[in-house]
C-alpha cells in the first residue's frame, strides 16, 4: 500500500508537523470516533486472544489465570508432536485440504469458461442462478442431506443394492470420508465461486476473439490464449489465499461428518483442538495445537505468495 505524503507541506519544521497532526486529529476527531468501535472489537476478539496464546506455553488453570499459571515452555508442543496421533491427524489435515484444493480449485474456473460460451444472456443468467443455490444451504443441512442420501437405507444405497446386492457403508468407512467431503464441497461451492471468474471474463475485449478467429484460431486455442489469460491474475490471488487456508480446512463440516468409525480419516487438527481443548478442558494443550496450526498456515501463505510472485508477478500484499 503506497500512500501519498499526508499533506504537502515539505518546508515546515518537525514541531510544526507534529502540531499540525494534533490539530488535524482534533479537528477531525469524528473520523477517529468512527474507527473506535471497529478497533475495539478487533482488539478484544483478535488481539487479546493473540496474547492469550501464551497459555500454550503454560499449564493454564482458569482459577490462576495467565499471570498465576506455571510456565512449561514447549512441553505441550513436544507432547503433541511426539504423540502417536500426530502424524495421522497432521496428514489427515493436509490430505483433506490439498486434495480438496487440487480437485476443487479448477472446477469454478472450468465452469466459468463453459458459461462464457453460452451466447444467450438469459440462459446464462438462469444457469448461474441454479448453480449458486447450494451456496445458500447451511453446512448442517448439507451434512444432513449427505446422511440422508448416503445412509445404508438411503436412496443411493437403494440403487447400489439393486446392482450389487450389498449396501456401502459410506458414512462409517474412513475410506470414503475425503471423497464425500470434497465432492460435497464442490457441489456446494463451485457455482458460487465461479462468479468472480465469470465477471472477469465478461470484461474481456470481444475484438480479441474476433481477430483470433479471423487468424484461424480454434475455439480451444482462443479459450486458452485469451480467456485463460484474462482470469490468470484472479486465479493467482485466489490460489495464494487457498494455500494460506490449507490448515483451516472446513472444520465445521469435518466435525459434523465425523462418526466414531471414520475418525481414522476424519480427525483433523481443528477437530482435535476442539475436543482436547474445549470438550476435555485441556486448555493449554489445545491452544498449543491451535498455535502450531496457525503458524504452519502462515508459513504456507508466505511461501505461496513468494512462489506465485516469482512465476506471475501477482501478489497478495
Amino acid at each position: 500500500m503506497k500512500q501519498k505524503p499526508s499533506r504537502g507541506k515539505g518546508g515546515k519544521s518537525r514541531i510544526d508537523k507534529k502540531e499540525s497532526k494534533w490539530a488535524y486529529i482534533k479537528k477531525n476527531y469524528v473520523l477517529y470516533l468512527f474507527l473506535l468501535p471497529a478497533v475495539l472489537l478487533v482488539f478484544i476478539f483478535n488481539y487479546i486472544p493473540m496474547y492469550g496464546v501464551l497459555i500454550a506455553f503454560q499449564d493454564f488453570s482458569v482459577t490462576k489465570g495467565i499471570f498465576g499459571s506455571d510456565w512449561v515452555g514447549l512441553d505441550h508442543f513436544r507432547s503433541f508432536l511426539t504423540s502417536p496421533n500426530f502424524i495421522r491427524i497432521f496428514m489427515n489435515t493436509i490430505k483433506l485440504s490439498v486434495y480438496g484444493l487440487i480437485i476443487g480449485f479448477p472446477v469454478p474456473i472450468i465452469l466459468a469458461l463453459m458459461l462464457n460460451q453460452v451466447r444467450r444472456m438469459n440462459i446464462k443468467k438462469n444457469i448461474q442462478l441454479v448453480i449458486y443455490a447450494p451456496h445458500f444451504i447451511s453446512t448442517v443441512v448439507i451434512v444432513g442431506m449427505l446422511f440422508i442420501f448416503l445412509s445404508p437405507a438411503g436412496p443411493i444405497n437403494a440403487l447400489i443394492t439393486q446392482f450389487t446386492g450389498n449396501p456401502v457403508s459410506f458414512l462409517s468407512d474412513p475410506a470414503y470420508f475425503r471423497t464425500i467431503f470434497i465432492t460435497s464441497g464442490i457441489w456446494q461451492g463451485a457455482g458460487f465461486s465461479s462468479i468472480v471468474y465469470v465477471a472477469a471474463l465478461s470484461n474481456a475485449d470481444p475484438q480479441l476473439h474476433d481477430a483470433a478467429t479471423l487468424d484461424g484460431a480454434s475455439l480451444l486455442q482462443r479459450i486458452w490464449h485469451i480467456d485463460v489469460q484474462v482470469i490468470k491474475p484472479i486465479m493467482a490471488v485466489l490460489f495464494i489465499l487457498a494455500i494460506g487456508g490449507i490448515m483451516g480446512v472446513g472444520f465445521e463440516k469435518a466435525y459434523l461428518l465425523q462418526t466414531d468409525m471414520n475418525i481414522p480419516a476424519s480427525e483433523i487438527i481443528d477437530t482435535y483442538v476442539y475436543k482436547r481443548g474445549l470438550l476435555a478442558g485441556d486448555w493449554s494443550f489445545g491452544a498449543a495445537v491451535g498455535l502450531f496450526n496457525t503458524v504452519i498456515g502462515l508459513i504456507l501463505l508466505v511461501i505461496a505468495n513468494t512462489v506465485v510472485k516469482r512465476l506471475n508477478g501477482e501478489t497478495l500484499y
Binding site: I44, F45, N46, I48, P49, M50, Y51, G52, V53, I55, V62, D270, V273, Y274, G277, L278, W283, G286, A287, G290, L291, N293, T294
Partner: peptide, 10 residues
Amino acid sequence: NGGMIPTYLV
C-alpha cells in the same frame, strides 16, 4: 489469530 481456545477464554 489466537485460535479457538484463547478466543473462547476471552
